[in-house]
Design a protein around this nucleic acid. Sequence first.
RNA 1: GCAGCCGUAGCUCAGCUGGUUAGAGCGCUAGAUUGUGGAUCUAGAGGUCCCCCGUUCGAUCCGGGGCGGCUGUACCA
Length: 506
Amino acid sequence: MNKSQKSFRPKARVPKGLRDMSAGMVRAEERMLARIREVYERYGFDPLETSAFEYADALGKFLPDEDRPNEGVFSFQDDDEQWLALRYDLTAPLARYVAENYDALPKPFRRYQTGPVWRNEKPGPGRFRQFTQFDADTVAAPGVAADAEMCMMGADCLEALGIPRGSYRIRANNRKVLDGLLERIGIAGEPGSTTYMTVLRAIDKYDRLGRKGVELLLGPGRKDESGDFTKGAGLSPSQITAVVDYVESGVGEGASDRKLVLDGWRNVVGESAIGREGLDELAEMDALFTAAGYGLDRIEFNSWIVRGLGYYTGPVFESDLLFEVKDEVGNPVRFGSVGSGGRYDGLVERFKGVKVPATGFSIGVSRLQAALELLGKLDVEDVLAPVVVLTLDAANMAGYQAMVSELRAAGIRAELYLGGSGMKAQLKYADKRGAPIAVIEGEDERTKGEVTLKDLILGSEMSKEIEDNAAWREGQPAQVAVPRARLVEEVTAMLARHRSVRGHHG
RNA sequence: GCAGCCGUAGCUCAGCUGGUUAGAGCGCUAGAUUGUGGAUCUAGAGGUCCCCCGUUCGAUCCGGGGCGGCUGUACCA
């Protein structure tokens, strides 16, 4: 036997940035998805599902390049040599779907979609290489009423998820205001140019780096605490001042009213036509928010919300949690926004050649879940574990099977102990499982036509007061012998008692 | 991608200024305590000391390279 063959063992490990989800996490996520879905449905969106991967050219300009074939997206070649890529969001597949089925769809077309997406990026807290998003989009809707709806629906979703009003904020802005500002202060470069994007991204970091950091990024560049240097946009001092003044006009005291913020921005955009247009759109959105009763405690206009992505063309928005999140060790964790969106009028155009205005909102379910988990606000474990029927006597498996079947037929979660260990281990198993009741039928019970029901929840309460082992065992805490024929009724009664003690359920 | 710190049991870590069989606590598996989850006691399993190369009589420890993790930063279409 070859030595290397003999000693080879694959290392059991989950790939970085991916994770396994235990029962509690799966249930928590499903609950979140159900609540979001309910809101989306109420707003009149219909479900759509598209596949997990697409032809790479349909997803965007991101064909694998030679140096780093998997940069950003995970991609691979089909047997006909065509490049496929795992979807990195749900918007690009939507654009493909709309373009492919354009004539058959009602317009506007409103759909929601959830599912995993994949990005080949460096993972971090609340940042994974596979994560779940939940999107709603309205396609072929030119007016900003569609954008305003997204903002309001985003607020509704967060509240439906149990985040209290005041603990989150939907922050909106308009790319056109930014365009107006840059036009006024004479920054050369079309939207999408390097300088334009560098300025945008610098503004985007105001939240994190403050005025000083943004000034450096707009000017010569910034060195971070690890000594790494980030190249700046190279603006002149007066340009920098203009940009930073604008950014600070939308925060703090000045942001006390959406209308006041817009008034302040009139000077920012000056005579710029595109800037004026942006402000008019925001004013229209404000009117809609106000009419629908969405005040500043839910939606605000915010100058440093610009979104780093190139494809947004109008209103942009994101949702942020306002409370501080700390990790297990107590260090503050910086989560990005838990939802974001905006208007992308050019995405379908890539396929159709005609402009199809669209806007959408995407909730980062995985990130939100990670944040709520660290906050201890993720309600896990309200699913009752099964009743466990112990199998003490291999010759009587049929009898045990009959009990489990009766319990299941009565709608009670129940399982046979299927391991190979003795009674003590079986109870330990039931305990670890969180089982409310263990059903015990040994020889003694069988001859008497009884079963013993052990109330594991009550027993665990009692054990806190018993130190002595003899007393603990002799007392046979919280168990009762009942006639075998009354198994289902007695178990049902015991479960009902648990429910009333626990007080909540439903 | 760039920079800093870090890699010893499932987890949290100790240890060795380079020397035979690498340890603890918790966890896990079992035994004792009448056929009973907690507690207590006993035993057992579990390690290529991240990997490779070099220095050395000898490397978990020293040097180089790699890989992985964390943090910051960048990127996030």
